[in-house]
């Protein structure tokens, strides 16, 4: 096979070689996000994290739902699934269980993950499968042109709440902690260096990791923009936070005033589902195993029916 045949004409890179920079994780097309969107910082941080972890594109599956941020898998040079609104976690769970050798990363927004997909987050957290969930939280519905999201602040005026939001927001950090997630972090898209470390930690963590990222919407959310976050953002590590202390983690996660914390809130080593599941212990991933019943297995099944 000639070198030309092995080169992807769109990316201009050798298909089989190891990435030489974070740029090798750039996808086939460029993001269609608004200029200045927080999601750029998240995408760049993810690409950098994957590169620094020395992963190859084919070892990664990025799964998203629907929303501006859910377009991310298309902008990443990795296997991708761009799926239904709110369903990235079930898709990612199925794919990871089918091939547990893949590094599976779910991505999406706050509406996708905390609204329509909220039920799946609760159960994926307690299930503790070895997945990384990256939520670009902009506290607004962007793709539908500006309505409240589950994380919008009370009284916020949007197209669906012209008289102000009457509902209280979800706190994704405390929710994930309460539901048993074993790695819960919050990042800020304007601090990519910090975010890269959180993402790397999440991918390396053996269990479910939620990384909620403040990723401001420059078009529809003028309340929680970069100017709002900049003076308030404080890092947990600067405060000597103990990541084993879930009560302190919840207290810090609830802070929403002059100080808003980012960093790793909790982590623990509760065994992951894939490490406990008997069926995955021996042999290759399920997707690569031989299909059907052996003669011996069939005989046993019939025997029990007699």
């Amino acid at each position: 096979m000639s070198v030309a045949e092995r080169t992807d004409p769109l990316l201009g890179i050798d298909l089989a070689r190891a990435p030489e920079s974070a740029k090798d994780f750039k996808g086939k097309v460029n993001p269609d996000w608004c200029k200045g969107c927080g999601d750029f910082g998240v995408l760049n941080s993810l690409q950098r994290a994957l590169f620094e972890l020395e992963l190859k594109p084919h070892e990664i599956l990025a799964v998203s739902g629907i929303g501006c941020s859910s377009n991310l898998p298309g902008y990443l040079n990795a296997y991708g699934m761009h799926t239904l609104h709110g369903r990235s976690l079930p898709f990612a769970t199925g794919a990871k269980l089918g091939n547990h050798e893949l590094t599976v990363i779910a991505t999406g927004g706050d509406g996708d993950g905390y609204g329509i997909g909220g039920n799946h987050l609760m159960h994926t957290a307690r299930r503790n499968l070895n997945l990384t969930y990256l939520v670009m939280n902009n506290q607004i519905y962007g793709l539908t042109t500006g309505q409240i999201s589950p994380t919008s602040r009370p009284e916020m005026k949007t197209k669906s709440t012209p008289f102000g939001n009457l509902e209280y927001p979800i706190n994704p950090i405390t929710s994930a902690i309460m539901n048993g997630a074993t790695y819960v972090a919050r990042g800020y898209s304007a601090d990519p260096k910090h975010l890269v470390e959180l993402i790397k930690g999440g991918i390396q963590h053996q269990g479910f990791s939620l990384i909620d990222v403040f990723s401001p919407c420059v078009t529809f959310n003028h309340d929680n923009d970069f100017a709002f976050f900049k003076p308030r953002i404080k890092k947990l590590e600067d405060e000597g936070h103990d990541t084993q202390d879930w009560k302190a983690a919840c207290e810090k996660a609830m802070a929403w005033g002059d100080e808003i914390y980012i960093g790793l809130f909790i982590t623990n080593d509760r065994p992951s589902l894939d490490s406990m599941e008997m069926v995955l212990q021996d042999g290759p991933p399920l997707a690569r195993r031989e299909l059907g019943l052996s003669k011996e297995q069939g005989k046993k099944l019939i025997g029990r029916m007699m």
Partner: peptide, 16 residues
């Protein structure tokens, strides 16, 4: 909802 989508995820990985 989770069931139906999880099955697709597993099928995409190559399982029946």
């Amino acid at each position: 909802i989770g069931v139906a989508n999880m099955a697709i995820g597993a099928a995409h990985s190559g399982c029946r």
